[in-house]
């Protein structure tokens, strides 16, 4: 299937592919930062005791997890203008990615926090540490260790999900690859070029996770 791969055409489109790659890198990075911020906020709201603050966070997480990203993307793309909000496609895409991934991240962070045994929190309490100190010094450092792998997993999903933004005419890696298919009727060449780009991003994230874990492991325990 890849036997007669036309590498000359692929090289010809390299500048476009490179531009797409950079766009995907940008969308994913900003999307990830936004998603982390939303995830931490939503998680903080779901684990605190006030019901009226918890409700909106729970509704947000449930709604996002229950519906497809494509539907969310179109909902913003066609819905926001009806509210009189006209934004560039790129920004809509970033908002959709952040909102989507943020909900999953909230759940990942929450499960990490809940995995810390209650006894450690009580030990912190009984030495006079405040709620914020217990979170900062005892709970979060450990929760972070257990959540890095699933969070990187979610980041990998986010990178691939950003390909859906091609559907609202954001030019990113997938869209750039489609150019080869459309201009030259060579869909396989386009897809291979695209796949190589995603593969690079995947390995970058994977090695970042590995490096982080090696640096932050508890000696003899991992």
């Amino acid at each position: 299937m890849l036997g007669g791969l036309n590498t000359r055409v692929m090289m010809e489109y390299l500048p476009e592919i490179w531009q797409g790659f950079l766009a995907t890198l940008f969308l994913s990075t900003v999307g990830f930062v936004g998603a982390m911020a939303l995830g931490v906020l939503a998680c903080a709201l779901t684990i605190q005791p006030l019901r009226w603050l918890r409700a909106p966070a729970v509704i947000y997480v449930d709604t996002i997890r229950a519906t497809p990203l494509l539907a969310q993307l179109y909902f913003l793309y066609f819905g926001l203008p009806r509210l009189g909000i006209v934004l560039p496609e790129m920004l809509i895409g970033i908002i959709a990615l952040s909102l989507n991934s943020g909900a999953y991240m909230a759940e990942i962070i929450r499960s990490g926090i809940l995995s810390i045994p209650r006894g450690q929190v009580e030990a912190g309490m009984s030495t006079g540490l405040s709620y914020m100190q217990r979170m900062r010094l005892i709970v979060l450092p450990q929760a972070l260790r257990t959540t890095v792998s699933p969070l990187i997993g979610q980041a990998i999903v986010l990178v691939k999900d950003s390909s859906l933004l091609s559907l609202i005419s954001v030019v990113e890696l997938t869209r750039a690859g489609q150019r080869i298919a459309i201009d030259r009727f060579m869909p396989v060449e386009g897809l291979v070029a695209t796949a190589l780009g995603y593969l690079m991003l995947y390995y970058a994230l994977k090695s970042a996770a590995g490096a982080w874990q090696a640096r932050n492991s508890i000696p003899g325990r991992g």
């Binding site: 006894g119 450690q120 009580e122 030990a123 009984s126 450990q142 508890i218």
Partner: peptide
């Protein structure tokens, strides 16, 4: 001071 049955040291 409070000492627990299960120690509850901070593992990290």
């Amino acid at each position: 001071g409070f000492v627990f049955q299960s120690f509850n040291l901070y593992p990290h």
